[in-house]
Amino acid sequence: MSRIETSPLTKQVYEIIRKKIISREYVAGDKLDIQTLADTFGVSRSPVKDAINQLVHEGLIEVIPRKGTYVTELKLTEFLEVLDARLMIEKWAAEEIIGTITEEQIQIWSEIVKQMDALLEVNPFPFEEYSSLDMNFHKLLIGWAKNTRVKEIYFSLNTHVSLSRVVYSTSLESTVIRHKDHWDLVEAMKNRDLSTFSEILTKHINSLKAEAESRWDETIHA
């Protein structure tokens, strides 16, 4: 592996480790040795420790006293709770912005969904690329609400969602079904229809929860 040569080192180490977790190169339960990571990346222990601390804060890594540092084991109940929290925050954000959202912002949302449309036609389906656009679609909603603390909390939640999506990798069929929800959300926001927006969003999140519950054991150990 090529060594890290530019600064800030902590951010680079953080991004590399995070990517390895998201891509499942480091899987749940793997022990991460700080000195080994430092040697691998060609850096001192300090930026590795700082990066580990950030990932602990996000919940991707856990430190077990007198045992070591491990990639966090995912639990279905925790994932479902994250989705519940995400739903609450997104509903709040929609209520905050529905009266002030601009045509330009709605156009930005529409363009993201168009890109997602195009990916659904690609074979093999680029799941991670689609998932990245999907997450950006929802993150924009939170960002437009302009509450820094809520945004930080939400982005931390979405780290878990991102990891869990990779773990249980929803089927293309169910992704296509849920995809239509994004256009419906855009339309509801365009019409300033908060009730319809909340109804669609609830259906969207509940669909993710139902699929996770039905497939978790099958995919978490795949």
Rank of each mutant, 00 (worst) to 15 (best):
M1T: 12
S2P: 15
E5P: 03
T6S: 10
S7Y: 13
S7E: 15
K11I: 13
V13N: 00
I16E: 13
I17T: 06
R18D: 07
S23Y: 12
A28D: 12
K31V: 15
D33E: 15
Q35H: 12
A38E: 01
D39V: 08
D39A: 13
S44G: 07
S46D: 12
P47M: 04
P47V: 04
K49P: 04
A51K: 02
N53I: 15
Q54A: 13
L60V: 01
I61R: 01
R66S: 13
G68P: 09
Y70I: 03
V71H: 03
T77Q: 07
L80M: 01
L80T: 05
L83M: 03
D84W: 01
A85M: 14
A85N: 15
E90T: 11
W92C: 05
I97D: 00
T100P: 10
I101C: 05
E103P: 02
Q105K: 08
Q107C: 07
I108Y: 12
I108H: 13
I108Q: 14
M116D: 01
A118T: 11
E121G: 07
P126D: 03
P126V: 04
Y130W: 08
D134S: 05
N136P: 09
A145E: 01
A145C: 10
R149A: 09
E152F: 10
E152I: 09
Y154T: 02
S156C: 04
L157Y: 01
N158C: 13
R165V: 00
V166I: 10
V167C: 03
S174W: 11
V176S: 13
I177F: 11
V186M: 00
V186W: 00
L194E: 00
F197I: 03
S198F: 02
K203H: 10
H204V: 01
N206Q: 04
K209E: 08
K209F: 01
A212G: 02
E218H: 09
I220V: 09
